[in-house]
């Protein structure tokens, strides 16, 4: 027990999370608008720093991206959202491209519009190079902000991490709730392309402090029925009058709220928050390496 506590402290010391306003650093990415977690650097050894020189974009790239951003915001954000995650128009940050995912497909859609929808033609208004800049910015919206300076302090083994992820007997139990390549449980979010969609620090934080940020689509609820039975599960749907949720064992429930004695949306994630204790430091980094390989 004492060992375990020491280890937890050790990991938390290594990954000392500090809260910063990410919006100041990266205004375009609103997923972490309110608060996000940055990580204080652990000392890197010289070799690692030489292997991974920080990639500074050229002034031209910076200017092109800024132009793309201005055009995106002025012309596209009304329907696709300031964050690109859609709304009236489709989400541009996920993997689903209804009209093709290549640059030329997206260019075509921007130039010609989509008939029978409110997606207008922009071909007569924008030059191809301008469209390319918009696409580059949209691609960026689909990526989590990366702080090139941040690395885990151990290089993990992605192969071992993969085994750990799917090992039903391991303490991690990841695949019980998460899928990768359609394998695994469907309680939590699928983790395909997670390395592109989320920053490394966000992923590490999600493992170590699972309740810090819960996607509204993966919130847990707890109800007390009129017979006094307490049930807890992942919310599938909620309206003003009813709640539908699925227990961890997959059992589905639907209740009218007025028939319940109590109803609450839990502030804690269904995901355990004790992986720092359950896994060895090596295991944690293997798992992390595996997740970071999912591009």
């Amino acid at each position: 027990m004492a060992d375990r506590k020491m280890k937890t402290r050790r990991i938390e010391r290594r990954y000392h999370f500090s809260v910063i306003h990410l919006s100041v650093i990266h205004p375009s990415v609103s997923f972490l608008v309110m608060l996000c977690v940055g990580v204080l650097l652990c000392p890197l050894n010289a070799q690692q720093a030489a292997d991974d020189p920080p990639q500074e974009p050229s002034p031209e790239q910076v200017a092109a991206l800024a132009e793309g951003k201005a055009m995106y915001r002025g012309l596209c954000s009304g329907c696709h959202g300031g964050s690109g995650r859609g709304g009236k128009g489709p989400n541009l940050t996920d993997d689903r491209w209804l009209h093709g995912d290549k640059d030329e497909d997206i260019t075509r859609v921007i130039q010609k519009g989509v008939p029978k929808t409110t997606m207008k033609k922009l071909g007569e208004s924008l030059k191809e190079e301008q469209i390319a800049k918009i696409i580059a910015y949209v691609r960026l919206l689909g990526r989590a902000p990366t702080d090139n300076n941040w690395h885990p302090y151990l290089a993990g083994d992605a192969k071992l991490g993969q085994q750990l992820f799917f090992d039903e007997k391991a303490k991690s139990q990841c695949s019980k709730c998460h899928t990768v390549n359609k394998q695994g449980g469907r309680v939590g979010p699928a983790l395909d392309r997670i390395a592109v969609r989320r920053s490394p620090e966000y992923i590490m934080e999600s493992i170590l402090q699972s309740s810090k940020f819960i996607d509204p689509q993966y919130e847990a609820v707890q109800v007390v029925t009129d017979e006094g039975k307490v049930l807890k599960g992942l919310r599938v749907n909620e309206s003003n009058f009813s709640i539908q949720f699925r227990e961890e064992d997959g059992r589905f429930h639907s209740f009218l709220k007025r028939d319940l004695d109590e109803f609450q949306v839990l502030k804690t994630s269904l995901m355990p928050d004790n992986f720092a204790e359950q896994l060895t430091v090596k295991q944690l980094h293997d798992l992390f390496a595996f997740l970071l390989s999912l591009e």
């Binding site: 002025g74 012309l75 954000s77 924008l126």
Partner: peptide, 20 residues
């Protein structure tokens, strides 16, 4: 942000993003 007027195209002068 930059407000550029192109006839017939959106003229928003930047954007808004709802709080998550």
């Amino acid at each position: 942000g930059k407000a550029f007027f192109i006839k017939g195209q959106p003229y928003w002068g930047s954007s808004l993003t709802l709080i998550d």
